[in-house]
């Protein structure tokens, strides 16, 4: 019947409205997501900052891209958590027994994840500004940065969806994000990779976070971006597509 498909957008709007209420009624989750990255930023700038040799004179500028990625990586664990609860409490089943577009339920969660991470990112950028972050970038580079961050969020959100849909417990649904949180530490997010031992350095330079961090850093400081941005985009899109396919499979099978 075509009705289910015709209503996809309005159904998804209802789903989005629902999860946004969830977010604004549990502001503590946004605060929790913001606190760790902000604490890391304070720690690195005011405690380790003096001892770290980065290429920029302003260490907050150097640090911010990595901090934002950490914030997003921890933010998406709430997406997995919300999805898991919906599945466990039979809410997804209720929706699926109704004549609504099935994927609207999942896309509602995905959009919610994007919106809540945008809020987090804005908060952290404001804190960074207060700590001395400055950017000479114009509107286009900023839009490019926003685009990369949204893509990165989408990519990790679909990874989170796999976790949320296949987890057997609340802990399982959110634990998957811990390894993701480590990636920025073994990248150029905090210190340049040339100071690292060879094996670590090889890993650091070839994992997604480094290219994303480098691309964002270059955009914000008005430097030429080089091929980093294409590597970054390829990583984001690649992860997103692979995770999307697996998540959809888990969704069809389990929910």
């Amino acid at each position: 019947m075509e009705t289910a498909k015709n209503h996809f957008l309005s159904d998804m709007g209802v789903m989005l409205g629902r999860s946004m209420r969830h977010i604004f009624r549990s502001m503590d989750t946004i605060i929790t997501v913001c606190i760790t990255p902000i604490a890391l930023m304070l720690l690195f700038v005011y405690v380790f900052g003096g001892a770290i040799q980065a290429d920029t004179d302003n260490y907050v500028n150097y640090l911010l891209p990595g901090i934002l990625l950490i914030a997003i990586a921890s933010g998406i664990s709430y997406t997995a958590y919300r999805l898991f609860l919906d599945k466990q409490r039979g809410i997804i089943e209720r929706f699926h027994s109704m004549p609504i577009a099935r994927s609207a339920v999942l896309w509602g969660h995905v959009l919610t994840s994007v919106v809540s991470n945008v809020i987090t990112v804005v908060i952290i950028v404001l804190v960074a500004l207060a700590m001395g972050f400055r950017s000479s970038a114009g509107i286009l580079p900023w839009l490019a940065v926003a685009g990369i961050l949204v893509l990165f969020t989408l990519a990790l959100t679909w990874v989170a969806a796999i976790a949320g849909l296949s987890a057997k417990s609340v802990e399982g649904a959110s634990a998957f994000s811990y390894p993701l949180l480590f990636l920025p530490f073994i990248s150029s997010a905090f210190v340049p990779t040339d100071s690292m031992p060879r094996v670590v350095r090889a890993f650091a330079e070839n994992q997604p976070v480094t290219s994303i961090v480098e691309a964002i850093r270059a955009l914000l400081s008005g430097q030429p971006v080089g091929h980093d941005i294409w590597v970054a985009l390829a990583w984001c899109v690649g992860i997103m597509l692979a995770a999307y396919l697996f998540a959809m499979r888990a969704y069809k099978k389990r929910a």
Binding site: A4, R21, R25, E93, R94, S97
Partner: peptide, 21 residues
């Protein structure tokens, strides 16, 4: 299945209400 879904409603074994709302 779409025809079925237009005709039915399900109250599952465990109350499926959104507790935050």
């Amino acid at each position: 299945p779409d025809g079925v879904r237009q005709s039915i409603s399900l109250t599952g074994q465990f109350a499926a209400v959104d507790e935050v709302l």
